[in-house]
Each structure stands twice: as C-alpha cells, then as structure tokens.
Nucleic acid binder design. Structure first.
Length: 113
DNA sequence: CCGATGACTTGAA
DNA sequence: CTTCAAGCCATCG
C-alpha cells in the first residue's frame, strides 16, 4: 500500500474511534465535525465499514448515529454482536437503540479538545 | 467523466 | 408525530 497518504482520512477516524472510552459512545457527525468536516458524517461511517481493513482493532460498535441507534449492526454480522458488545461494556441498549445515549455520549470535540 | 451508493444529518411538509 | 427530500464527501463501476 502507499505509505502514508490515502489513509490520512481513515487514520483520523480510526484514531478517534480507538480513543473512545469503554462504556461510551459517539456519533459519526461528532467525529466528522472534529475532523473539520461536519458534513462528512457519511465518510466516517464509510470509513468504519472499512475498519476491518485497518491494521488495528477499531471499536466501531461504540460509534452510532445521532439518535443512538445501532445502524451499523448489520456490519457486525447482522446479528446482535454489536448490541452484546455494548452491553458488555455497560451501555444499555434496547431494540438496537441506546437508552442512556445522552449519558454515555462521548464527544471528541470536548474530551480531546 | 458521470452516475450510483452509503454504518449520516438536518430541515421541511 | 411521521415521512420525505436534499446536502454532504468519498469510493466504485
């Protein structure tokens, strides 16, 4: 692979994702905004879809949409893997939606700033 | 180069 | 309150 150019965007997303504390979650828009592209929420999600291609493990299960819904659970096998992962970390999830989303929300623009 | 797709977001009807 | 539409950036065919 090319040594260091095209992974720039991915690297930032993965870098933040890896910094998400256990038991906390964040939204794509929050990460995108922190990257300077608040409108690039899709790119964050798209990067997450390729997280398996990243050299390191990325807690993508801690990244959900703005509503706190596990929109990407299907990328974890289409089962309840994502839900179980969050539950094992202390995140309450019901019907693929985080209950105390506001409580477990982790904003990189605040925590990392 | 153009068109379509996507783990999103926001606003309006 | 629910549903639809447009905007957004990047990758793929």
């Amino acid at each position: 692979m090319d040594a260091g150019s095209n992974n720039d965007f991915f690297e930032r997303v993965y870098l933040i994702a890896e910094q998400i504390p256990q038991g906390r979650v964040t939204s794509y828009g929050a990460i995108a905004k922190y990257l300077g592209s608040a409108r690039g929420a899709r790119m964050v999600g798209w990067a997450m879809s390729q997280c398996s291609s990243w050299k390191r493990f990325v807690p993508a299960h801690r990244v959900v949409n703005r509503k706190g819904v596990l929109t990407g659970k299907r990328h974890f096998g289409g089962g309840e893997i994502m839900r179980e992962l969050l539950l094992s970390e202390g995140v309450k999830v019901e019907d693929d939606q985080i209950i105390n989303f506001d409580q477990v929300f982790w904003d990189p623009a605040v925590e990392l700033d």
